[in-house]
Design a protein around this nucleic acid. Structure first.
Length: 606
DNA sequence: GCGGATCAC
DNA sequence: TATGGTGATCCGC
């Protein structure tokens, strides 16, 4: 039935469930240390250990859903094959030529990746653990050492399954402070090679060593990275792997090539890059996960080289973004600008937790209250408030649902969070019954800083917040700022442009750096002048009182005033707008999360 | 703007 | 006994 002899799903109807087994193996199949593992046997154990559980049933449903989607893709592919695609292929070839013209081979980018980081740190404290299979984490493993990987144990695996694969597995609890402290030691070394290195997570970083090489003409990229790794190992006793390449995407792939404790270079040479990509399995590139891998496999794309032969069809089969991602990856293109994480802006903040199945109005409200309190704490610590709130639940069946609402003002207090989230939770409860949940989460987006005088126009967005009760609606009799800015016929880019323009103009009048300007972690709030605040519009000195100040700013910011500000600074902006680096698959998981992830369960430092 | 899905770590 | 948490992006509506 499947038109392609897909290696991942040789028989979709056979009842053998190869794709499901593959999916149950987990997301970290390409991790190092698995070469000598009997994947078939491991898959069998995992499959049998999972069978019957609610989790398994959910995975089954998901797998069937994906299988259906794939059948649709294959039908569309069949149809495309019957068409004459020569003109489409011509267009794609022009696209390739244009991308090719933008290829930048002038930079030397390094990706540094610690080997089994948490496990290695634990082994420093207790060297005897090096000799036995060991994992960090409980219900779900955060990471494990290479001895454990020899048994098929991996990060992200349920603890009880790991125990079946390896009964003698030693479990250690997470000790966050140890990992962050060690990460800081490593970064002290990285900074010597690139003062503007980019921490991608606790245990990963990108460096641009082009400058370093210019200052040290008598050496080579490989030698520099060997030295860097040696220095890290000597000073911190942590072994790291590294990839050296002309851009971040390739460097990341390369760092996985000789793991653990190795390095690999993809030369800054077009032929070498293309040659490397041609046989590289698609899954090795960031952005291709389990699902995309299956979809690509189903249409005959296993390695990046396959993309070229199928370019006519692929460009019609997938979305514009997805196609551009495929094309750039095939060409081995990627971003070359590396800079500190501090220069990114957080877009959402949330908290969620898993627990024993919960139901009933009382327990649900209690859980919502504690979740709201947790989020309040985090928002307070980050000096943020949000204008959109999202409630997320995972049912006892593992189905995830969410309800969100954009509010008329920003909120951050536990009380506000709770009050706005409750109706959303009740909506979910009404829709999905029986409403037994195993996870609840709260998240806010449309963030603005609650710090006075920082970049985000907070005096504006926070305005209604400081006016209690019904009066908040009267603060903007003619509608919100959003209504003013989004006039409907403007493209999103244009609207973003205006938003930036306003912010910049206001920042300028405040004598503050614009929000994208590199700056120290917390610039001094120049707006606060000893019990007097200065209006950013008319420069009048005002009493340091939120309500009075906001009311005055409200007055000053009449529509006419805003229009002038926008028009004036928009012109300037267009001229000095720096060319944006666009990267099809933008960079997920940006700013400091409370828990980084599986292999990096930790907030980003700095 | 909303909700689901995917991905990384 | 019993499969995580945080954040981002994309797609289709």
């Amino acid at each position: 039935m499947a038109s392609e002899d897909s290696k991942l799903t040789p028989e979709i109807e056979g009842g053998d469930r190869a794709s499901l087994r593959h999916s149950l193996l987990g997301p970290s199949l390409l991790k190092a240390g698995q070469d000598k593992v009997d994947q078939k046997k491991v898959g069998e154990i995992i499959y049998n250990a999972s069978k019957g559980s609610k989790f398994f049933k959910h995975e089954e449903r998901r797998d069937q859903q994906l299988t259906k989607r794939i059948e649709i893709i294959q039908r569309r592919k069949k149809h495309l094959e019957s068409l004459d695609l020569s003109s489409q292929i011509r267009r794609v070839d022009e696209e390739i030529a244009a991308s090719e013209a933008s290829r930048d081979l002038s930079q030397i980018i390094v990706h540094v990746d610690c080997d089994a980081f948490y496990a290695s740190v634990e082994e420093l404290d207790r060297p005897e653990l090096k000799e036995v299979p060991m994992a960090v984490g409980g219900g779900v493993l955060t990471t494990c050492n290479y001895k454990a990987r020899g048994f098929g144990v991996r990060s992200g695996m349920a603890g009880y399954i790991a125990k079946q694969l390896c009964p003698q597995l030693v479990f250690l609890p997470l000790s966050f402070h140890k990992y962050t402290a060690k990460a800081e030691e490593i970064r002290e070394i990285l900074v010597k090679y690139d003062g503007r290195y980019e921490a991608a997570s606790v245990d990963e970083a990108f460096l641009n060593i082009t400058g370093y090489l210019e200052d040290h003409r008598d050496t080579t990229p490989d030698k520099v990275v060997e030295q860097l790794r040696r220095e890290v190992l000597e000073h911190t006793k942590i072994s790291v792997s590294a990839g050296i390449a002309p851009n971040a995407r390739l460097a990341k792939v390369a760092s996985n090539q000789n793991k653990p404790n190795g390095q690999f270079r993809i030369p800054n040479d077009r032929e070498a890059v293309m040659h490397f990509m041609r046989t590289l399995p698609v899954r090795r590139v960031n952005g291709v996960g389990r699902v995309f891998e299956r979809e690509l496999d189903a249409v005959g794309v296993r390695t990046w080289g396959d993309v070229f032969a199928l370019r006519g069809i692929l460009s019609k089969l997938f979305s514009k973004k997805a196609w551009s991602f495929l094309l750039n990856s095939y060409l081995g293109l990627g971003r070359t600008c590396i800079h500190p994480v501090a220069e990114y802006e957080r877009k959402s903040l949330g908290t969620e937790s898993t627990f024993k199945d919960l139901s009933g109005p009382g327990p649900l409200r209690d859980k919502l209250r504690s979740t709201a309190q947790e989020l309040e704490r985090d928002l307070l610590a980050a000096n943020l408030a949000g204008r959109t709130i999202t409630v997320k639940v995972k049912l006892h069946t593992y189905q995830v649902h969410s309800r969100q609402k954009a509010l008329h003002r920003v909120i951050s207090s536990a009380e506000d969070l709770y009050n706005h989230a409750l109706p959303l939770l009740q909506e979910l409860e009404g829709e999905f019954q029986p409403f037994k949940i195993r996870l609840m989460g709260l998240r806010v987006t449309q963030l603005s800083s609650t710090r006075k005088g920082t970049g985000k126009m907070n005096f504006f967005k926070n305005l209604p917040q400081s006016i209690e009760g019904e009066a908040e609606w009267e603060a903007w009799p003619e509608g919100s700022l959003d209504g003013l800015l989004s006039s409907g016929h403007l493209s999103q880019e244009v609207q973003d442009e205006e938003q930036l323009a306003i912010e910049e103009a206001l920042n300028a009048s405040l004598n503050m750096p614009a929000r994208d300007t590199p700056q120290d972690p917390s610039p001094p709030p120049k707006m606060v002048l000893k019990e007097r605040w200065e209006c950013p519009i008319c420069a009048r000195s005002l009493p340091a009182d939120d309500a009075v100040f906001n009311e005055h700013v409200d007055f000053c910011l009449s529509r006419e005033t805003i229009r002038e500000v926008v028009q004036e600074s928009a012109g300037v902006r267009l001229v000095k707008e720096p060319e944006r680096k666009k990267d099809a698959k933008a960079r997920p998981g940006r700013p400091g999360s409370k828990h980084g992830g599986m292999d990096s369960y930790f907030p980003k430092l700095q």
